[in-house]
Simulated scan of single mutants.
Amino acid sequence: MDISVVVPLYNEAESLTELTAWIKRVMEAHHFSYEIVMVDDGSTDGSWRVIEELKRGNPYITAIKFRRNYGKSAALNVGFAAAQGNVVITMDADLQDSPDEIPGLYSKIVDEGFDLVSGWKKLRHDPPSKTIPTKLFNSVTRGMSGIHNLHDFNCGLKAYKKEVVKSIEVYGEMHRYIPVIAKWAGFKRIGEQVVQHYPRKYGKTKFGPGRFVKGFLDLLSIFFVGKFGKRPMHFFGTMGVTSFLAGFIIAVWLIVEKLTSIAHGTPYRNITEQPLFFFALIAIVIGTQLFLTGFVAELVSRNSTERNDYQIERVI
């Protein structure tokens, strides 16, 4: 099978008929073998009834329904598991992503050899309350991830090699950072394509300001797990030893200063009367705690069933 189109959705009953018909036209025009994997994330507006009706008329539709709303990341993760195509395309169900972009995205994966291609909605039809924070988060993500060639990490329209979606796990609000997850999994050929963005035609946006807080926390989680997940002592141990040594050096310096003053008979203050003493004490305590945290995390990591779960590209 050439293409799997994964469509996560929540309360998008009005747009589903038009979307699936549009996808079908594009696929037939380019002679792609395909499937549409629709994941209903606990919709309450009758979306599932629409999907059941569409499936009766289109055998290429596969549908999965959650009992309740888990979020877009969960829907994508389940959709990725179900996808069978050699190239997996994701798009939102609100008709703001154009199926006409599918051939171009497919070509960049198959013909140009990219592992992942993210859409860039260069001209967006969203209010400033959504576009300005998005630009800020994209800038932060580029800096932290080192993926400097992407302008829009959160664009729902993306294309993946099958190997990518079968090698990553998406949860929380991490759908925003799939290119980062893919990079940490070893897929380095990540590209971008400018795509058309349409105004919302039906329903209302599911976007909320609280998602930025969750998204930023998930970015920190991705950064830590991806970089130190299999060697936590390198993170906690380095900070712990640095803090402990700083406190220890200051404490030794204070003691030597006092002994020198006694030897020369000059006035001196008690060590406990100096603010540096308490700074040194706190640094030593924090350093010890961080080191022990790293030690415990290392034990947990070494006993994990996934401690030697690595992504292997080829075997010859």
Rank of each mutant, 00 (worst) to 15 (best):
K135D: 12
S167P: 00
K166R: 08
T141Q: 05
K122E: 15
K130S: 08
I168Y: 08
G143Q: 10
L150D: 00
G143N: 14
E169G: 13
Y171W: 13
E169Q: 14
K161A: 08
K162W: 09
I132K: 05
I147H: 03
K166L: 02
H125V: 11
G156F: 06
K130T: 10
T134Q: 09
T141V: 05
S129E: 12
K122T: 14
K135H: 07
I147K: 03
T141S: 09
L123M: 10
I147G: 01
G143F: 12
S129C: 08
K166I: 03
I147Q: 03
G156K: 06
K135V: 05
S129D: 12
C155K: 00
K135S: 14
T141E: 05
M144F: 15
L150R: 02
P127I: 04
T134K: 07
K135E: 09
W120D: 11
S145M: 04
R142Y: 13
R124D: 15
I147L: 14
Y171T: 15
K122P: 07
Y160I: 06
F137V: 14
I132Q: 09
S167I: 05
R142T: 13
D152H: 05
F137G: 11
S139W: 15
V140E: 09
K162A: 10
S129R: 12
K122A: 15
V170M: 07
S145Q: 01
K162V: 04
W120E: 15
S167K: 00
V165D: 07
D126F: 11
D126A: 15
V165Q: 02
L150V: 01
T141Y: 02
P128T: 07
T131C: 04
P127G: 08
N154A: 03
K135L: 10
L123I: 14
I168D: 00
V170S: 09
H151P: 01
W120I: 13
S129K: 12
V170R: 06
Y171Q: 13
V170E: 09
K166Q: 02
F137T: 13
V165F: 03
I132F: 08
Y160P: 04
V165L: 07
A159W: 01
G156D: 08
Y171N: 14
E169L: 13
F153D: 02
L157I: 01
R124I: 14
L157N: 04
H125Y: 15
H125G: 07
N138R: 02
K166H: 04
C155M: 01
I147W: 06
K161C: 08
T134Y: 08
N138W: 01
M144R: 13
S145P: 03
P133Q: 05
P127Y: 09
V170W: 07
I132H: 05
P127M: 08
D152V: 00
C155A: 06
D152P: 00
V140L: 15
I147R: 05
F153G: 01
G156C: 02
G143E: 15
K122N: 11
N138P: 02
K135P: 01
K122L: 15
I168Q: 07
T141P: 04
N138S: 06
H148E: 13
P133H: 10
T131D: 07
P133L: 08
F137D: 10
G146M: 04
G146D: 05
L157D: 02
G146E: 00
A159D: 00
